[in-house]
Simulated assay, not measured.
Amino acid sequence: MVSVIGGDDSIRLLPLLDADLIRAHPKAFVGYSDSTVTLMQFLKAGVMAYHGPAVLTDLAENGGIHPFTRRGLEQAFGTEPYDLSPAPEWTEAGQDWEDVAAQEIRREFQPGDGWTWLQGDAPGEGHLLGGCVEILDMLSGTPGELPPELWHGAVMALETSEDVPSPAQVGYWLRNWAAKGVLQRLSGLLLARPRDYTPEMTAQLYVWVRRVLKEAGREDLPVVANVDFGHTSPQLTLPLGAQVRLDPVAGRVTVWP
């Protein structure tokens, strides 16, 4: 199953999603953004879910699916360990899905800018959890929220949407997780390239992340930012529930699907 596109109302599905049914009839579900709601319910049911491209945003890419996106899907659905890698190019340009003539015109991409390791001197390893930060916050206090114990030992992956939450707002959400005791239990943190951020906003985001982690006593936590997943193209597919290892010294992120 693949999400067609995101939105803002998947939370209305919560009364209709049966964890026992998901567990008894597991399917592979791929999506991101608002689909974080469904991804979390799969994880609560003990079924691996895939934070990755939707149909209209990357799979139906004008000019054909990007090789980086294709490779990320193939790796995530494979059986061998693999290293994540930075995209060679990226874009935030939109696509005109109604213009048939434009379907063969490739979007304009810019050279890849690599990852940024924010902190950490030792590797961290754990099961991968996360999604769109706005949707995870929307789930807070609802039956769809991941219980704190599922975060114990996890590597958290967070991405921001085209709503462009401010760096301070992201910091406030991180403080919320610190108040719940989540940050204190993590093994690592993956931050996506923030959608529509200026360089100044990105710098402020990194200040906030380090500030909140220091407040939580987690200056040791390995953190890598500007990773190619979420609201960016091309994007990686993250197999949520799989094991992942962050090695800040080697600059490697290894996944065991």
Rank of each mutant, 00 (worst) to 15 (best):
R107K: 15
A45E: 03
Q204G: 07
M156Q: 15
T36P: 09
D137Y: 10
L73W: 04
A157V: 15
E134R: 02
D121W: 06
P148K: 03
L73H: 04
S35E: 11
G144R: 02
T142G: 01
R71D: 13
V37M: 01
E125V: 15
A250L: 12
K44M: 09
M156T: 15
V227W: 00
R195I: 11
T38W: 02
W177M: 07
M201N: 08
Q169Y: 02
A28M: 14
P143D: 05
D99G: 05
L238W: 03
E159W: 03
R23F: 04
F42S: 04
V244F: 00
V133A: 11
L59Q: 12
F229G: 07
R23S: 14
G251A: 03
Q235L: 08
S166H: 04
E80S: 07
E92I: 15
R195V: 14
V155G: 05
T38M: 07
S3M: 06
L190Q: 02
L238M: 04
L129C: 08
I11R: 05
E215C: 05
I65P: 09
G31W: 00
E149V: 15
L186F: 10
Q75H: 06
W117N: 08
L43C: 10
V182S: 07
G63C: 10
G78D: 03
E145H: 04
G78I: 06
K44N: 07
G94L: 09
R195N: 14
C132Q: 03
T69W: 06
R12W: 11
P123N: 02
V212T: 09
G63I: 09
L14H: 02
Q75N: 08
V212S: 01
S161I: 04
K180A: 13
Q110K: 13
